[in-house]
Amino acid sequence: MNDMQNLEALPDSARRVALLLQERGHASPVVMLPETGKTSAEAAAGLGCSVAQIAKSILFRRRDDDAPVLVIASGVNRVDEKKVAARVGELARADAKFVREKTGYAIGGVCPIGHASQPVTLIDEDLLALDSLWAAAGHPHAVFNLTPQDLVALTGAPVVDVALREPA
């Protein structure tokens, strides 16, 4: 199957991501998982990788101006909202309607790039310790492979400590 046939087989939102990745010179294809990749554990199981390698995209709403705030975190980490708020301002929950409106993607398929409105983006520093990552590609079953360096280059986002660290 050639690239065009592969693209035609993708759902619309995943096809948009595949085309955007091609435009940006990213060679890895969008892969469709047989089962959902809505959670990091489900995606990792479907890909045969560690949960840490799942670059999950979590969207918040900045309380002051309703700006979308995207945190791209390792699948094993919980995001420390206080750390994020200290960098970008007070946060509020983003419901499914807000996520769809601001990103153009459904929850579970939010890609690190190609949003309807440009989010304030932060990348979890723990991702940089890994060789290979998998990120959502616009659909709950769609993912693509990239390196941490690719993620930084594609998003232009700062790499910061966003993980909730449990006291020892």
Score class of each variant (00 low, 15 high):
I123R: 05
G46F: 00
A116R: 15
C49A: 10
T155C: 12
L151C: 06
I54G: 05
H115E: 08
V162Q: 07
A9K: 09
N6Y: 05
L151R: 04
Q149T: 11
V152D: 00
E23I: 04
G89D: 10
T121Q: 10
V17F: 03
I107M: 11
D161V: 09
R62H: 15
K38A: 15
D95W: 14
L128H: 05
V69N: 14
I58D: 02
K56S: 14
K83Y: 00
L128E: 06
L130C: 10
L20R: 06
L21S: 00
H141M: 03
G48L: 11
S74Q: 10
Q53G: 04
A27P: 15
G46A: 01
V71W: 04
R87K: 14
S13A: 11
V69H: 13
A44L: 03
D131P: 13
V30T: 01
V160K: 12
E101K: 11
Q5H: 05
S13M: 02
V71M: 10
G75H: 04
G25T: 10
G138T: 12
P112R: 14
R15A: 15
Q5D: 12
L122A: 02
A27I: 07
H141P: 03
Q22D: 13
N145I: 01
R93W: 01
G37Q: 03
T121S: 10
I107L: 13
S132I: 01
A86D: 10
A44T: 00
F60A: 08
L47E: 09
E42M: 11
N77Q: 11
R24Q: 08
G25M: 12
R15N: 06
E35M: 11
R15S: 07
P29W: 02
V88H: 01
P68H: 06
P119C: 02
N145S: 09
V120I: 13
P167D: 05
V17S: 02
L59I: 15
L133Y: 03
L10F: 07
D3R: 15
E35F: 05
A85H: 08
E42H: 05
V31F: 00
V71T: 08
L21Y: 01
V159C: 09
A129D: 09
E23D: 13
A9I: 04
A43P: 05
P34I: 07
R100I: 01
S57F: 12
R63Q: 10
G89I: 11
A96G: 15
S50M: 02
D124N: 11
A14K: 05
C111W: 06
K83V: 03
E23C: 03
L133T: 07
E23P: 03
R62A: 12
S57D: 08
G46W: 00
A92T: 02
S13W: 00
Q22C: 06
V110M: 07
A55G: 09
A137Q: 08
V88Q: 05
A163N: 03
L151V: 06
G48K: 13
A96R: 15
E42Y: 01
I113P: 02
A85I: 11
M4T: 08
P148W: 09
G46R: 06
V79S: 12
G25F: 10
V120N: 05
A92F: 04
A52D: 14
L127T: 09
G89H: 11
I58A: 06
L19W: 00
L10H: 06
